[in-house]
């Protein structure tokens, strides 16, 4: 009887040990997230992608040729940019093709509006377009403008006439040029 009691105590102790000790083993795995560099740019149009800037013939002999002062054609510049903390980007515009002598093509970008967020770029106001890249928007960090018309920067074109140079060149006629926009690192 005495031995039976001892045996029971041993069994109990053994059982308690089994169920009280030995929980809490763990395993781990690494979860890594790598956000890459991204630079995406697009132009969004409400109507046509073409901009037509026409000269107005003088109504009286001896008057000057007039050009439309400006043309707001509802071209919207959208971009998504992911870059490193202290890195900045800019949008440049370059003319492909030959602008007639004496004609100055200007571009104005408005500040970003719409659903964008982050470190959006600032407009450089009105810039003269040529065959060398002109900085249109600067200081772009990690951000997005929102997609489609009425998001991002509204663009408008202006044409100015340098009358002296324009009239000196008698071969001037209609010209078609492309304006190329690039989202690039701002070094």
């Amino acid at each position: 009887m005495k031995h039976k009691g001892t045996f029971l105590v041993i069994i109990m102790l053994f059982s308690i040990t089994r169920f009280c000790i030995g929980s809490g083993k763990n395993a781990e795995h690494k979860a890594s997230i790598i956000i890459p560099n991204v630079a995406l740019l697009s132009l969004q149009y409400e109507n046509s992608s073409g901009v037509e800037l026409c000269g107005i013939s003088p109504s009286s002999a001896g008057n000057t040729i007039k050009l439309e002062a400006d043309s707001e054609v509802s071209v919207w510049l959208n971009y998504s940019s992911i870059c490193h903390k202290n890195q900045k980007r800019k949008v440049t515009a370059t003319v492909e093709g030959k602008i007639p002598e004496g004609v100055v093509l200007k571009l104005k970008a408005e500040d970003s509006v719409g659903n964008g967020n982050g470190e959006l770029g600032k407009t450089n106001g009105t810039v003269v377009l040529g065959q060398r890249p002109a900085d249109v928007i600067s200081g772009i960090g990690s951000c997005y403008t929102g997609k489609g018309a009425h998001n991002g920067h509204l663009l408008s074109y202006q044409v100015e006439l340098d009358e002296t140079r324009f009239h000196q060149n008698t071969k001037n006629k209609g010209a078609s040029v492309n304006v190329v926009y690039t989202l690039t690192d701002d070094n």
Partner: peptide, 30 residues
């Protein structure tokens, strides 16, 4: 001694979110 090796949990595989996951379909999007 017997209890020195309780139930164990192990994990196989690796999780990585990289360029393939972070796609932006159109400029202007998040």
């Amino acid at each position: 001694l017997v209890n020195a090796q309780p139930m164990t949990v192990t994990v196989d595989g690796e999780v990585s979110f990289d360029g393939a996951n972070f796609t932006i379909s159109e400029a202007g999007e998040d």
